[in-house]
Design a protein around this nucleic acid. Structure first.
Lengths: 144, 144
DNA sequence: TAAAATTAAATTGTGTACAATTGAATTGTA
DNA sequence: TACAATTCAATTGTACACAATTTAATTTTA
């Protein structure tokens, strides 16, 4: 491998990561379109289905997104009636985001999506588990 | 695992893929900033360093990007003097993109970036190879 | 406790991404 | 060979994504 081979697209690790991420997210689109949701809105809801209430800062840490991305996104989810945005009473710097009943009811309808998307990604259970582990290892190393 | 556990962020395969992709790309930023380049511009150059000349359609297939993304991006690279855009003489529908001398000279300077980014991703050679293989398997399955 | 430092969200500006449409060029076919 | 179908790039419109800055609230500290 000469000096410049490392500059070939097919020798990069980042490129298939970038491309696979986008292609898998595209697979969500037809399912999410039915509910007028985007992938990013979907993962935000996913956090709220579990957390019930969380501030923007912590939501951003979980999703690896900042307020520049989340502020407009959350306003859209609020406009759809799926979440509620309220300033914390104890610390007005914090905006508390919580799930509404309407938003919570979507949970049932959206539950089958990951399974359906999973079916068209051609990995067996072991490969999926290995990929999962390696991706979290990458994530962990890039964050600190 | 109950019905809704599949809706937890930490049980998704797509989410760490999405997040790891973004975090690794961020690692490129300080290196690319020196040359006023973005990651997407960088991978476009990477193709051109090898292909010398390619039309937008084929470039898009290699990068998993469409003309909506590439047209403005290529105009920026042209404005920087790194590439040239010319209509094909034999078929004017095709826009031929080629690397300029200035663009080619960047190759030397940008050669060390993937190595430097690689160092801060905490995977050994075997893990990197496994991840690479699995990502291409995902890519292949999502494309057809 | 008043000023400085910190924190959190919002805003601003740039650059992707991509679906859908448009328009020009070429190809296939009746 | 006209004309319909196809192909390619550009355009339009929406939605992130993120760096950098701003604004407001809170905490620290002199």
């Amino acid at each position: 491998m000469n000096n410049f081979d490392c500059l070939k697209l097919e020798n990069q690790l980042c490129f298939p990561l970038y491309a696979a991420s986008k292609e898998v997210i595209k697979k969500y689109k037809p399912y999410l379109d039915e509910y007028g949701l985007t992938y990013t809105q979907y993962i935000a809801l996913m956090v709220l289905w579990n957390e019930r209430e969380i501030n923007v800062k912590k939501l951003g840490e979980k999703l690896f997104l900042d307020s520049g991305t989340l502020t407009p996104l959350l306003k859209k989810l609020e406009a759809k009636g799926l979440i509620k945005r309220t300033r914390s009473l104890t610390d007005e710097r914090n905006l508390m985001v919580s799930i509404t009943n309407t938003g919570d009811n979507l949970k049932e309808k959206l539950a089958s999506i990951p399974f359906n998307v999973g079916k068209c990604v051609n990995l067996n259970e072991e490969e999926a588990k290995t990929l999962y582990t390696l991706l979290y290892k990458v994530l962990k190393s890039t964050v600190d």
